[in-house]
Amino acid sequence: MAKTVRNIITIGASAGGLSAVSKLLTKLPADLDAAVFIVIHLGKAAIVDVVLNMLGKNSALKISVPEDGTPINTGRVYLAPADSHMMLEKGHILIKQGAKENHWRPSIDVLFRTAAAAYNSCVTGIILTGLLDDGTSGMAAIKKCGGRCIVQEPDNAEFPDMPNNVLNNIEVDYRVQIEEMGYILSDLYSRNDCDAASVPDDVKLESAITLRMATSLPVTAQLGTLTPFTCPDCGGVLTQIDEPNGETRYRCFTGHVFSESFLDNQYADKTEETLWVAIRMMEERRNFINTMRKNDINKKEREERDQEILVHIERLKTIMQEVAKSRQELTKSDHKKIES
């Protein structure tokens, strides 16, 4: 008979994550009194069986990729499938193709947030190596619900962005190397000091929205302030969510979610795409004018139009270069903030 699940461990990793997660799993004992859930950012084409074999090679715990509705069992490790969110409800796992968060599916934030809402203070979140900031919002939800937060020491991480983002926004319980995490988890669960805690309304609501995979604008607006900004993915109205720790996120009522820095990057991408389209259309018009029949337009007028369009094209190229330069400077500034 399966043992009732009491403790939940959620692990998130991105770039360099396969090696880091493999190392962590070797530190977990076979009698660990917890169910373990892992999100690694994998591409759609990732061969999950290969990843499973790599993770399970030296793990004392059995690892599997769950299906929608899979029951949660203690002493098991569950790996999120490629291109699907892994979410938790009490006692079972949901696998859904919901909207991407920060362009990731599976998303670390989605797993962490739904785990916090379902298991409150009995959740331990772990963030390992990775780029950008997926996992920060989810870790904040775990902290709000009384759970514990463990972050890989950034100097020990192959890519320190994700650990640094968590450290810059959340007061974590442990900042350690992977080698120490197994001892910490064994100690935590040997004491079995998990007490049920209340789940804040905002965590409940956002988790419910995530589980439903879509909602209405009035419901989403309960999480923050409606903005004049639109979702770069679908054009929906964005709600600004300001966390107590100072973090700002933007949620579209269709389900897309962006951190502030990621949304800025998306708008920059769209700006660049628009400029390229404008340049291409002007080049096409210029070529068309130069191939028009001579009796439709005289040579002098054709040359004048050609030069006018060429001036506009050069202006757009200059603007694009300035946008790219500004973006590079902002990226450097963001990295300095993360590292500080």
Rank of each mutant, 00 (worst) to 15 (best):
F112W: 06
K143R: 15
F112Y: 15
A46C: 06
M54E: 09
L55G: 00
I47C: 01
S137F: 11
T74W: 00
T136I: 00
C145P: 04
G146S: 04
T124D: 13
S64Y: 12
I150H: 08
K144D: 13
I47K: 03
F159C: 06
F159W: 02
D83N: 14
T114R: 10
K57P: 08
A157F: 00
N120D: 15
K44P: 06
K144W: 13
D33T: 11
T124S: 15
I108V: 14
D49Y: 09
G98S: 14
V123C: 07
G135T: 00
V65E: 00
D109L: 06
I150Y: 03
P71D: 01
A117S: 15
A35K: 01
G147N: 06
A117W: 05
N58D: 15
G138N: 05
A46F: 12
A140V: 07
L52R: 04
D68T: 14
N102T: 09
V50C: 02
V110E: 05
I95Y: 12
L111Q: 06
E101R: 00
L42H: 02
N102H: 09
G147A: 02
I63D: 03
G56S: 00
Y78V: 09
V50D: 04
V48S: 01
T124P: 12
M139S: 04
D134R: 10
G69H: 04
